[in-house]
Protein backbone atom coordinates (compact mmCIF):
# COMPACT_ATOMS: atom_id res chain seq x y z
CA UNK A 1 0.00 0.00 0.00
CA UNK A 2 1.48 3.34 -1.04
CA UNK A 3 0.56 6.63 0.60
CA UNK A 4 -0.38 9.04 -2.19
CA UNK A 5 -1.99 11.96 -0.39
CA UNK A 6 -3.02 13.72 2.81
CA UNK A 7 -5.61 16.38 3.61
CA UNK A 8 -8.21 17.55 6.11
CA UNK A 9 -10.50 14.73 7.32
CA UNK A 10 -13.87 16.52 7.32
CA UNK A 11 -16.40 13.80 8.07
CA UNK A 12 -16.70 10.22 9.35
CA UNK A 13 -13.44 8.74 10.64
CA UNK A 14 -14.17 5.24 9.37
CA UNK A 15 -11.64 3.45 7.17
CA UNK A 16 -12.93 2.71 3.69
CA UNK A 17 -11.59 1.36 0.44
CA UNK A 18 -12.97 1.34 -3.07
CA UNK A 19 -12.40 2.18 -6.70
CA UNK A 20 -11.38 5.80 -7.24
CA UNK A 21 -13.37 7.74 -9.86
CA UNK A 22 -12.23 11.15 -11.07
CA UNK A 23 -15.29 13.40 -11.57
CA UNK A 24 -15.06 16.56 -13.66
CA UNK A 25 -18.52 17.20 -15.08
CA UNK A 26 -22.18 16.32 -14.60
CA UNK A 27 -21.75 13.93 -17.57
CA UNK A 28 -19.27 11.94 -15.44
CA UNK A 29 -21.91 11.73 -12.70
CA UNK A 30 -24.50 10.52 -15.22
CA UNK A 31 -22.12 7.85 -16.53
CA UNK A 32 -21.44 6.66 -13.00
CA UNK A 33 -25.12 6.77 -11.99
CA UNK A 34 -25.85 3.02 -12.16
CA UNK A 35 -22.44 1.90 -10.92
CA UNK A 36 -21.64 4.41 -8.16
CA UNK A 37 -22.08 1.86 -5.39
CA UNK A 38 -18.93 1.47 -3.28
CA UNK A 39 -16.89 4.04 -5.21
CA UNK A 40 -14.72 6.89 -3.89
CA UNK A 41 -14.99 10.07 -5.96
CA UNK A 42 -12.26 12.68 -6.35
CA UNK A 43 -12.89 16.17 -7.71
CA UNK A 44 -10.45 18.98 -8.26
CA UNK A 45 -12.34 22.24 -8.55
CA UNK A 46 -15.63 24.11 -8.23
CA UNK A 47 -19.00 22.79 -9.36
CA UNK A 48 -18.83 19.60 -7.32
CA UNK A 49 -22.35 19.94 -5.93
CA UNK A 50 -23.24 17.60 -8.79
CA UNK A 51 -22.01 14.71 -6.62
CA UNK A 52 -25.08 15.04 -4.39
CA UNK A 53 -27.36 12.71 -6.43
CA UNK A 54 -24.97 9.74 -6.08
CA UNK A 55 -23.62 10.52 -2.63
CA UNK A 56 -25.79 7.91 -0.90
CA UNK A 57 -24.03 5.21 -2.99
CA UNK A 58 -20.44 6.38 -2.49
CA UNK A 59 -18.14 5.28 0.36
CA UNK A 60 -15.92 8.37 0.30
CA UNK A 61 -15.26 11.78 -1.27
CA UNK A 62 -12.01 13.66 -1.92
CA UNK A 63 -11.29 17.18 -3.15
CA UNK A 64 -7.95 18.82 -3.94
CA UNK A 65 -9.22 22.18 -2.63
CA UNK A 66 -11.83 23.36 -0.11
CA UNK A 67 -12.18 22.78 3.63
CA UNK A 68 -14.70 21.81 6.33
CA UNK A 69 -17.14 24.54 5.25
CA UNK A 70 -17.29 23.53 1.59
CA UNK A 71 -20.58 22.20 0.29
CA UNK A 72 -19.04 18.80 -0.52
CA UNK A 73 -17.81 18.44 3.08
CA UNK A 74 -21.23 19.45 4.46
CA UNK A 75 -23.17 16.91 2.37
CA UNK A 76 -20.56 14.18 2.98
CA UNK A 77 -21.10 14.66 6.72
CA UNK A 78 -24.87 14.47 6.19
CA UNK A 79 -24.40 11.08 4.55
CA UNK A 80 -21.81 10.02 7.14
CA UNK A 81 -19.11 9.09 4.61
CA UNK A 82 -15.40 9.94 4.95
CA UNK A 83 -14.35 13.11 3.13
CA UNK A 84 -10.84 14.48 2.63
CA UNK A 85 -10.71 18.15 1.61
CA UNK A 86 -7.68 20.09 0.36
CA UNK A 87 -5.79 16.87 -0.30
CA UNK A 88 -2.15 17.21 -1.33
CA UNK A 89 -1.39 14.41 -3.77
CA UNK A 90 2.08 13.09 -4.50
CA UNK A 91 0.85 12.16 -7.98
CA UNK A 92 0.34 15.09 -10.31
CA UNK A 93 -1.87 13.49 -12.94
CA UNK A 94 -5.14 12.72 -11.11
CA UNK A 95 -6.59 11.10 -14.25
CA UNK A 96 -3.92 8.37 -13.96
CA UNK A 97 -5.57 7.32 -10.65
CA UNK A 98 -8.96 6.81 -12.29
CA UNK A 99 -10.17 3.23 -11.72
CA UNK A 100 -7.43 2.39 -9.17
CA UNK A 101 -8.28 0.83 -5.80
CA UNK A 102 -7.60 3.22 -2.94
CA UNK A 103 -8.04 3.34 0.82
CA UNK A 104 -8.88 6.25 3.12
CA UNK A 105 -7.59 6.22 6.71
CA UNK A 106 -7.32 8.87 9.43
CA UNK A 107 -4.41 9.83 11.65
CA UNK A 108 -6.50 10.28 14.81
CA UNK A 109 -6.10 14.05 14.65
CA UNK A 110 -7.53 16.08 11.77
CA UNK A 111 -5.86 14.44 8.79
CA UNK A 112 -7.20 11.95 6.30
CA UNK A 113 -4.71 9.83 4.36
CA UNK A 114 -5.14 8.30 0.93
CA UNK A 115 -3.38 5.06 -0.04
CA UNK A 116 -3.06 3.32 -3.36
CA UNK A 117 -3.73 -0.40 -2.87
CA UNK A 118 -1.20 -2.40 -4.88
Amino acid sequence: MNKIGEGLSCSSKSEVDGELVYIKTIEDVINLFDSASGKICIVDDAGITTLSPILSELVGTICTTGSAGSHLAIVSREFGIPCIMGIKLSIEDIASLNGKRVKITHDGKDNGILYLIK
Binding site: T65, G66, S67, G69, H71, G86
Partner: peptide, 22 residues
Protein backbone atom coordinates in the same frame (compact mmCIF):
# COMPACT_ATOMS: atom_id res chain seq x y z
CA UNK B 1 -16.07 26.51 17.00
CA UNK B 2 -14.67 26.11 13.49
CA UNK B 3 -14.18 28.97 11.04
CA UNK B 4 -13.26 28.90 7.36
CA UNK B 5 -12.28 32.30 6.07
CA UNK B 6 -10.84 33.97 2.98
CA UNK B 7 -10.37 37.29 1.17
CA UNK B 8 -13.11 38.63 -1.10
CA UNK B 9 -16.57 37.12 -1.61
CA UNK B 10 -17.41 33.89 0.23
CA UNK B 11 -18.42 31.66 -2.64
CA UNK B 12 -14.83 30.37 -3.01
CA UNK B 13 -15.20 28.76 0.43
CA UNK B 14 -18.48 26.92 -0.25
CA UNK B 15 -17.70 25.91 -3.83
CA UNK B 16 -14.13 24.74 -2.95
CA UNK B 17 -12.32 26.82 -5.54
CA UNK B 18 -9.59 27.63 -2.97
CA UNK B 19 -8.32 26.29 0.36
CA UNK B 20 -9.53 28.83 2.98
CA UNK B 21 -7.93 29.53 6.35
CA UNK B 22 -9.06 27.16 9.10
Amino acid sequence: MLINSTWGLGQTVTDSSIIPDL
